[in-house]
Design a protein around this nucleic acid. Structure first.
Lengths: 189, 189
DNA sequence: CGCTGATGCAAGTGGACACTTGCATGAACG
DNA sequence: CGTTCATGCAAGTGTCCACTTGCATCAGCG
């Protein structure tokens, strides 16, 4: 009675197609084909394209959380946790998350799906604020620090998928943090 | 005999709508409305949506070139030229260029339009190689250096349009270059 | 004033695509 | 063996959108 093709297999196919073509251009037809099921079956089982994406994202990124509740005295360690997390997030499943982030600005559907794990960012803000108060980081809007920190990782991940001439290895979180802290230090008078 | 609404005014409207909604979601209807002309007129004058974009981009970004033909002895100065250029490029016209870059990966139309000014990147590669040979920059694929350098500028510009909690001022090219060079230095043993 | 040509307007064409539906098949389960 | 139910298949619906077309208008120009 269960489906021959498992839900997870459909999620895999969907994320793969979406990573390659983007959510809007990924037709339900193409996803169904990639999963080896009929398009009608896809809708019978997953209701809508948006719902399929939501379930696929939940299933594949939910258990994957950031362990940062107790920021410590070691900035470098905490930043490394953050960078490491985002780095592996961007590397997962062919970089779907980056693809979705790009589309989120113009597609309310995608934005809605992505809004769920958004709360992570608030954890990150808290950690950055903590270290700013300790004097270990320059005081500026935490999102600013976050973007400056994550920038190289994201750029590298994006570049890798866009520009054949860019380095093809993912960024090394330790090097990123070190570079960030060194550059950062020079900003304090 | 000339058109009441100038071509330039139509380009302005098109770029504005596209910056807000993205190329694919920006309907020709919406662009025509924004320009204050009829949709039929838009097609009679500009042939196709893609062609309109191409002319708009050419008209608005062509004369805007990178003056870098003779790299000098001063890395900081050359990097500043590069960062300054891209920074103002990303700030122009509500950030259309960034919007288009996002879409380029999945839309062959947009990619084709963007390919024209692409040759700039080769100039940049040359400058970076020059300074690598001089020993002023770590030797790595030039695109890698480029993305590490431009990353903060781009991230900041993107963040500004996506995240209300991010800083709302554009990145300061001088600070970016300084931070980059300081962090860079620490990578050399 | 009469011609030309660009425009507005309204209706339409064609294709892409999310989503539906009716029917036949075939596997699992009692 | 017969019922059930998810599936495949094929055709179809509705919508959106780039692009077209026919016609009336109206400004500029000789």
């Amino acid at each position: 009675m269960a489906s021959r093709v498992t839900d997870q297999a459909v999620y895999d196919a969907a994320l793969e197609v979406i990573a390659e073509q983007g959510y809007e251009r990924a037709t339900t037809r193409a996803i169904a084909d990639a999963a080896g099921i009929n398009e009608a079956t896809l809708f019978r089982r997953f209701v809508s394209k948006e719902n399929l994406l939501r379930q696929a994202v939940r299933g594949n990124f939910a258990g994957f959380s950031l362990d940062l509740d107790a920021p410590g005295d070691d900035v470098a360690a905490d930043l490394l946790t953050i960078v490491g997390y985002y780095s592996s997030l961007y590397e997962r499943r062919g970089g779907v998350v980056l693809t979705l982030m790009r589309e989120a600005k113009f597609s309310p559907e995608v934005a809605a799906v992505l809004a769920e794990p958004e709360s992570l960012l608030e954890k990150v803000d808290a950690v950055i604020l903590h270290h700013q108060r300790r004097g270990a980081l320059v005081v500026e809007p935490p999102r600013h620090t976050f973007f400056a920190l994550i920038g190289p990782v994201m750029m590298r991940a994006l570049a890798r998928r866009v520009d054949r001439r860019a380095t093809q290895a993912p960024a090394d979180p330790e090097a990123v943090v070190r570079r960030f802290l060194d550059g950062h230090r020079s900003l304090e008078r």
